[in-house]
């Protein structure tokens, strides 16, 4: 036992004193700090990859992680939310999204030329009236109609419209109106009158 230990013993047993030391003076080295390392699974892919196989595809192209100072290289793909995998970049074919396009408009002149024009009954707007015999009344007026170019007229009874088929080769342009009249007293058929 050396003198220091004797002093320490006497101080503790006689004077009830205990040495208090500054901890910082005891620590000579800073605590060890370990870096967290990101582990990336890599696989060698054999064969061709098309956009269909790896859809949806997210390319981590030279993505830099600034805090740790590392970066992902080309060819790292994130496939369907799974692990990051490495492929040979020359095996990857990225297809560009197709530009929206449409086929050429179609010509259907032959079909529409066969269709009739439709005239509404405009009797409420037409102020002119044809000469009427006693007991006759006007039901409808349709116009304007190029009478000389008419091939066929058909009354579409349900909506009360007149269907007109024109001769497309006609060069006539003068128009007339067509009244539909009927007698009130008997069951006679309605009568058409050009004006």
């Amino acid at each position: 036992m050396n003198i220091g230990q004797v002093k320490k013993f006497l101080s503790r047993s006689v004077f009830k004193r205990v040495d208090v030391k500054n901890l910082s003076s005891e620590i000579s080295e800073a605590p060890k700090i370990f870096k967290l390392r990101s582990r990336v699974q890599t696989y060698k892919f054999e064969g061709n990859i098309t956009a269909d196989v790896i859809k949806p595809i997210e390319i981590l192209n030279e993505l830099k992680c600034k805090t740790e100072g590392f970066k992902f290289s080309h060819g790292l793909l994130h496939v369907n939310g799974g692990f990051i995998k490495r492929y040979n970049k020359y095996d990857i074919k990225i297809n560009a999204a197709p530009k929206l396009k449409m086929s050429q408009p179609k010509n259907a002149l032959k079909q529409i030329i066969m269709m009739p024009q439709e005239r509404m009954n405009r009797i409420k707007w037409q102020k002119m009236r044809p000469k009427l015999a006693p007991g006759e009344m006007v039901i409808a007026w349709y116009g304007p109609i190029v009478e000389s170019a008419v091939l066929k007229l058909v009354l579409n009874k349900q909506p009360g419209t007149l269907l007109i088929w024109y001769d497309s080769r006609s060069r006539k342009f003068s128009t007339r109106g067509l009244f539909l009249c009927r007698r009130l007293d008997s069951g006679s058929r309605p009568e058409w009158r050009w004006v």
């Binding site: 408009p105 179609k106 342009f173």
Partner: peptide, 27 residues
Amino acid sequence: GALLVVDVRGIPMDFRYTDYIRPTKLE
């Protein structure tokens, strides 16, 4: 869409129409 060109009597001179365009989900 469609277009119809008519003369002043309403007689067709030209009629063109397109098919429906259906954009894909990606588009």
